[in-house]
Every structure is written in structure tokens, then in C-alpha cells.
Design a protein around this nucleic acid. Structure first.
Length: 258
DNA sequence: AAGTTGTTCAACCGCCCCGCC
DNA sequence: CGGCGGGGCGGTTGAACAACT
């Protein structure tokens, strides 16, 4: 007999969370803290398993989450950290306040991986790939219909110009690739590791409501954090979902930029 | 306008680690 | 010391949306 599942899945809801469920979970956690994920759904009146609640809180509801695209600096930092730590997304994410491991992992898989391949760097080993392989990888990252070009068809750069409106001559491509290689080669792994060690020591991103409310040794800073959460709860009393916030953000963007 | 293909990301699954008994 | 249970983590999936034909 195998191990019992983490929770009884019969009658439990799965799939996307509704605004109402978000609201229930967030209210419960902010009022009671996190003692045991397994008991939270029952106490909060949710038909979800504890793991699902935990994931939703960590990846979406936490008040300290930072939303939106990662900056280029953050992206480069991720590449550097990945070179040192590998696929340890939680470790990597711990260096980015307000970012989740899931977010970093998704960002890596959908964007950075491709960018590295195009630039001739193996995303797994971070080693430079031989020029011949580079061109193969560039083709790999292209849509099927473009990568399988008959000999009479235009060459890759011409296709880039035609298909994507990118004006890159073969010389410019080489320069770009060389620049990226230089950047990678100049990476000072030792100083980076020191930096990582320093950051780890000074910053503890795994914020927990339970910790801040129950641990008297945490002191003034967590008290401030607790206060800010309280303020945040009050200001979002109507329980707007993050989607609604995002929509507002979009509209503000268009408003500002005409 | 409709169908197809590609991309993104929230959510799930299952394994592993660690603390408790 | 070993078993158990909970939490954490990384890999994977699939729905929703965007872009293209």
C-alpha cells in the first residue's frame, strides 16, 4: 500500500481560484495567521486542499508580492544565480523580494532560456556553444515553418528582416553574440558568490504572518510589517482581486501615456 | 471571420526533507 | 532509530490569450 495522499481529494474544488475564494483565504490568514495548512481550508470555509491554499497564498495573495515584468537587471541576476545554483528556484527567488519561485521558474522557461539559446549559451550548463551549433539553436528557437527552409528560400537573417522586422546583418549578429560571450566570460563567480552570501545573510524573504505576530524576538521591523499589512487590509476592504489591480495598473499606464 | 499555432503562467503532482513522536 | 505527517520544492500540464494564416 502506498502513501496516503496529502489530503482527501473527494469533493474538493480544483482549478482556477475565484475572487470569493481568494477573499476567504486572505481574510482568514490575515486574521489568524498560518498554523497548519491542512486545517486552513476547513477553517476558512474553502473546498480546497491545504497545498492548494498554500500555493495560492505564496504565489498570488501574499501582500508583499511584487507584480509585473522583471527588469533587465533582475533578468541578468537570475542568469548569474542560475549559473551558481542551477534549478533551485526557491533559492534563486529568495534573492528577489516579492518574487516567487514559480514566477522565476516560468520566466526562465519562457524567456531567459530562449534568450540564452539565441545568444549561443547553453541554458543548462551556461557553457558557450560552438558556432555551428549556435546557428542550429537559433533555428531551433524559431517556429517550425521558418526553421525548415528549403535551400532556395532566403537565409535566416533575411527571414528575420522579413518575418520579424528585425534589421540585423550577419556582422551585427556576430557582434551581438561576441558581446554576450564577453559578458559571460567576464562574470566574476567568486565575487558573485560573496555577494550572494551577503544577501542571504541580510535578507530573509520568507515572510510569515505567524512569525511576525507570534515571535516577540523579531522586534520593531516585523511590527512595522504587521502594521503595514493591517493598513493594506483596511485599504483593500472591498477585496479587489489582483486581476482587478492589474487592470487598474494597465488603465493608468494608458492614461499616463495617452 | 474562423481556424491554427505559439506563448504564457497559474495550478497541480509527486517526490524529498525535516521535525515530531 | 524508524515511521509518519506536513511543508517545501521542482517538473509538468493545460487553459486562456495572442499572433498569425
Amino acid at each position: 500500500m502506498g502513501r496516503q495522499p496529502c489530503c482527501d481529494k473527494v469533493g474538493l474544488k480544483r482549478g482556477p481560484w475565484t475572487t470569493e475564494e481568494d477573499s476567504k483565504l486572505m481574510n482568514f490568514i490575515l486574521e489568524n495567521g498560518i498554523q497548519c495548512w491542512r486545517t486552513i481550508p476547513k477553517l476558512a470555509g474553502l473546498l480546497r486542499c491545504g497545498k492548494s491554499c498554500r500555493l495560492r497564498w505564496i504565489n498570488y495573495l501574499r501582500p508583499d508580492l511584487k507584480r509585473g515584468m522583471l527588469s533587465e537587471t533582475e533578468e541578468n541576476q537570475i542568469i548569474q544565480l542560475h549559473a551558481c545554483l542551477g534549478n533551485r528556484w526557491a533559492k534563486i527567488a529568495s534573492h528577489f523580494p516579492g518574487r516567487t519561485d514559480n514566477e522565476i521558474k516560468n520566466y526562465w522557461n519562457t524567456r531567459i532560456k530562449k534568450r540564452l539559446k539565441v545568444n549561443g549559451v547553453d541554458p543548462v550548463t551556461h557553457q558557450h556553444i560552438e558556432p555551428k551549433e549556435k546557428s542550429e539553436l537559433i533555428l531551433e528557437t524559431m517556429p517550425e515553418s521558418i526553421s525548415h527552409i528549403p535551400e532556395t528560400e532566403p537565409k535566416t537573417n533575411e527571414i528575420n528582416e522579413m518575418q520579424y522586422g528585425i534589421d540585423i546583418s550577419s556582422d551585427e549578429t556576430t557582434i551581438l553574440l561576441n558581446n554576450y560571450e564577453m559578458m559571460c566570460e567576464s562574470l566574476d563567480v567568486v565575487s558573485l558568490m560573496n555577494q550572494v552570501a551577503k544577501t542571504s545573510a541580510s535578507y530573509s524573504p520568507s515572510f510569515s504572518v505567524e512569525e511576525s505576530s507570534s515571535n516577540p524576538s523579531i522586534g520593531k521591523s516585523s511590527c512595522t510589517q504587521g502594521d503595514s499589512i493591517q493598513q493594506w487590509v483596511q485599504s483593500t476592504h472591498s477585496m479587489l482581486s489582483w486581476d482587478a489591480f492589474n487592470q487598474l495598473e494597465k488603465e493608468l499606464f494608458y492614461f499616463r501615456n495617452g
